[in-house]
Simulated assay, not measured.
Amino acid sequence: MTDALVIGAGPAGLMAAEELARAGRRVLVTEAKPSVARKLLMAGKSGLNLTKDEPPAMFTKHTSGGGPALFEALKSFGPEEVKDWARNLGQEVFTGSSGRVFPDAMKASPLLRAWLLRLADLGVEFRTRWRWVGLDDGMQFETPEGVVTLNPKVTVLALGGASWSRLGSDGTWAQMLSGKGVTLAPFKPANMGFCVNWSDHMKPHFGVPVKGTALLVNGQTTRGEYVISEKGLEGGGIYAISAAVRDGADLKIDLLPDWPLEKIAARLSGPRGKTSVSNHLRKALKLEGVKRALLMEFGNPLPDGAALASLIKALPVPHAGPRPIDEAISTAGGVRFEAMDENLMLNALPGVFCAGEMLDWEAPTGGYLITTCLATGRHAGRAAARWSQG
């Protein structure tokens, strides 16, 4: 028996469990995988980016698709609150030159260990390898001991999106909720790479980072590093513009963003004699390595003069669409905000709340994802505690 049930042990679920426990509820957290917070630990392998150090109004502008409840959650638990929360777990943080905030330890494991100890002190219990399979006559789970049905007073669902299924976010919950009248937006990849059918000419550049270019989408210019992979284009710079390109915007690359068009045209107008085009680009513009390779890949046959200068400033990128959804860092789509009230409780299922990436919102990498998951988990957990009292 339990007062409160939390299904899903990622950041949103753990935060909801903490709020419920602080309100005096007996809390059980179930997780389908053998251990908790697997995606958080994976995110922390290259440095756990907890949040972005910027004013709340600017922070929320990077989140799209969310309803008023999401923005209310971020209003009360934004970047400053996330930093304080980490410090209260004994994890000091620092802000990098880009404004991204990391724990001093960089990894996720010290923070997670401290958090789980605090939850244990609050009486939160965990069951792993419990997969949620139904909600008729209670919450049903497939467990190592067989099928178990729970009837808690209140439930928070924090089941993740539909990417990285091997870490637990497989989106299989969507069919169960839609069968109960919960309206959902279709899942779409977010923060993902794009497929490019490279010629053999590009093979020597697989794995090479592209620095010092700008990405042009919908009249906006974005600077950021990305990588040439065997499958296409990936990395932070690409993720920042991935939503717009996924939804149909053209992608172009400015190979020399610090050079005005006129300067490039003037440099190219000089005589090249018997010098090859490739060497002329290297000598006149210092266009070398992977930048020159991208120009040859996407621009051949290269035009002359002013047309070539224009191509260097806005090189079209023909791609074959986003990488598969399971490879995406996150997903858009999920439970629509109109399917819930202002407390993130499902209209069709009173007493059942939702939090985290399973909600229909998206944001770029850079701390926005984790912060929003924590904020919605806190919002749903506090609301669930109040509802169970009433």
Score class of each variant (00 low, 15 high):
Val335Asp: 05
Thr222Gln: 13
Glu234Asp: 11
Arg292Phe: 05
Phe206Trp: 14
Ser330Ile: 05
Leu294Ser: 08
Gly207Phe: 09
Glu327Gln: 10
Ala293Asn: 12
Leu294Ile: 14
Gly333His: 09
Leu295Phe: 09
Lys231Ala: 10
Gly333Arg: 03
Gly235Ile: 02
Ile329Lys: 13
Glu230Gln: 15
Ile253Trp: 11
Thr222Asp: 14
Gly305His: 10
Asp247Cys: 05
Leu302Glu: 09
Ile264Cys: 13
Ser276Gln: 08
Ala244Asp: 12
Arg272Val: 11
Leu215Thr: 08
Phe337His: 14
Ile329Tyr: 14
Lys283Met: 11
Glu338Trp: 03
Leu287Pro: 10
Tyr226Glu: 11
Asp304Leu: 04
Trp259Pro: 00
Leu251Lys: 01
Phe337Cys: 05
Gly219Trp: 03
Arg323Asp: 02
Thr275Arg: 15
Asp326Phe: 00
Ala214Asp: 11
Ala332Gln: 07
Leu255Arg: 07
Gly299Asn: 08
Gly236Lys: 01
Leu295His: 13
Leu308Thr: 14
Ala266Phe: 06
Ser229Val: 00
Phe337Thr: 04
Gln220His: 15
Lys231Val: 02
Ala249Ser: 15
Lys274Val: 15
Ala266Met: 09
Leu311Gln: 09
Ala339Gln: 06
Leu233Glu: 00
Lys291Val: 07
Asn218Ser: 15
Gly235Cys: 06
Leu285Gln: 09
Leu302His: 09
Pro322Thr: 07
Phe298Met: 06
Gly270Asp: 06
Ser269Met: 08
Ala284Asn: 11
Ala249Arg: 01
Ala265Ile: 13
Pro322Cys: 02
Asn218Glu: 15
Gly237Ser: 13
Pro324Ser: 04
Ala243Phe: 03
Glu262Arg: 11
Thr213Pro: 04
Asn300Tyr: 05
Thr331Lys: 01
Ala240Gln: 15
Arg282Ser: 14
Val290Trp: 13
Arg246Ser: 06
Pro260Tyr: 11
Leu255Asp: 13
Val210Gln: 08
Gly235Leu: 03
Pro322Ser: 07
Glu230Val: 00
Arg336Gly: 07
Ala309Cys: 14
